[in-house]
Write a protein that binds this DNA or RNA. Sequence first.
DNA 1: TTGTATGCGTTATCAC
DNA 2: GTGATAACGCATACAA
Lengths: 335, 335
Amino acid sequence: MKKENSAPTMKDVAKEAGVALGTVSKVVNGLPVGEPYRIRVEEAIQKLNYQVNSYAQGLKASKTYTAALLIPNTQDPFFASITYYINMALLKRNYRMLLCCTDFDSNQEQEYITMAQQNKVDGIIGLTYNPNLKIEEQTPFVSIDRSMGANIPCVASDNFAGGQLAAEKLADLGCKNVAFLRIGSSLSNEPNKRKSGFENGCLARGLTYEMKILNDGDSFEEFEHFLKEHIQEGKLSFDGIFCVTDRVAWSVLKLLRKLGQKVPEDVQIIGFDGIHAFGGENYICSTILQPIPDIAEMCVELLLQENMMSKPPLVCLPVTYVPGGTTLEPFAEQE
Amino acid sequence: MKKENSAPTMKDVAKEAGVALGTVSKVVNGLPVGEPYRIRVEEAIQKLNYQVNSYAQGLKASKTYTAALLIPNTQDPFFASITYYINMALLKRNYRMLLCCTDFDSNQEQEYITMAQQNKVDGIIGLTYNPNLKIEEQTPFVSIDRSMGANIPCVASDNFAGGQLAAEKLADLGCKNVAFLRIGSSLSNEPNKRKSGFENGCLARGLTYEMKILNDGDSFEEFEHFLKEHIQEGKLSFDGIFCVTDRVAWSVLKLLRKLGQKVPEDVQIIGFDGIHAFGGENYICSTILQPIPDIAEMCVELLLQENMMSKPPLVCLPVTYVPGGTTLEPFAEQE
DNA sequence: TTGTATGCGTTATCAC
DNA sequence: GTGATAACGCATACAA
């Protein structure tokens, strides 16, 4: 006798309905089948509360309708948003999502990729920081924000254009002497183009500028030193600051207030990402908004695209500027 | 001839190593095997870059080392945190996590549960709002913040104690006349105990109090009306407010400032959850801190526990009070 | 059209 | 200790 409490199988349904195994399979998969049979089978399915075992299914078809998302964590609002929208994009296509938080750990990233491949996921979307990840040719992979080689499409915001836009906006808002503040991975990735774009924009608009570039390990206090050095008689020499992320902008905002500078009256700040306080309406600061829903959609689209041939190596999605209270908008005043 | 580009199987490894299939299986599973054999097999595994197919494994063992997390979204900081820590707790036990964002949609919640069962996950952890979810007896389920029946353990903060603690703290901080503001699901769940705990605390400490309870659909503006009604000659009659979540506290904070009230000088505010601004150090407001890592750990522990018998119906984890700038702490001043 | 038989990659049970 | 063989639940080519 078999296990009594185990889930019903197709065989059970077939027996219940008095038909052959193959017939049940066809009904389940929506293949043409005699009407009286289909009814009896469906009744049996209802009665036994049968559900297909997708592991057996995956074993046969070597297609699992599952994709993995590699992301450092879900707590950073940007990552959280990416996670949410990718989940939705996958759901829309009837795919399940395996979440893999890597905590910025290269080894975990690699382990997760191995795991995902074992698990025979149909593909992986990754926002990673490991410069030499080993990815099987087999497994479709789409990278966010970092180019990882010819066969791996990378999806990102148009970071260069975003940097440029920030410079232009600051110029439009009356700034003359600006600064760029960055902290983050020294790894070559798309967001690093924000700097170049900003420089480009400054040059085009005749803004004088300085840069302060910190790497991941560096202390945030170096920004404080940097800014203090540029304060003469209580007055900051910069009238505009572009920060590489909203997070940095937020910290700088607090820092400037501590140093007695008024934002946006004395100095205007533009961040990058488009984070809002509580998933609600208000932005943390004036910012270059990343089109996260579009990024998510594009990642999933590329991942599930059948013909690998047409996969573009880099897709840059357009960004927009949104005021968020740390700039002096000519017309509207933000909260 | 078989598919050439498909992943290597145990059979391939066996052929490569010149041993039998079963031997390979034993090596992979760490069962005792002759040393020379094990070496040859391991070399073959290396050479072919073999990985076990966990779908075939799951088919045999009907154990998949996968759990599903049902959660409305990952964007709300509380949900994001829960997601992260549950992911970590599962990872620690070598389990994978299927993420299922439900968007507060009852139908999606049910669909996901069905899906998870099809997918033969080993268990489901759910933070749900559907009062009559159908869950197979088969599938282990642990609920967060909502009791769902005798066989389903529920893990939550000690919400009652948290409410009480809030009242006591406000009393300690010198408040005399306080208010409780709540908006949220009208569904009976654990967080609703915050109100009762608060009432209890107020009574114990001789605080006079009022309550304003809104349901999910209600407009937030009703809080504005409520507060305005309690302002006489520019002065708010409450000197302390307990908000059901940090999110509400945050909104109320902004509202009060708009109404010309100073926080914390005129009125002190305590929230609930323990959200911080950017995953960093600072809290949004003074708050009752939920032990999210402990909640996650407990959920996973209960889910994977073998003997169902000992599963407690409700586990309440202790909360703590943390100052966050919206209260007048006797000693330390917050940021 | 319906039913039957085979195999997907593993694991477990046995003789050897 | 080793190696053939039978399941696990499903899909499908093929025979009826």
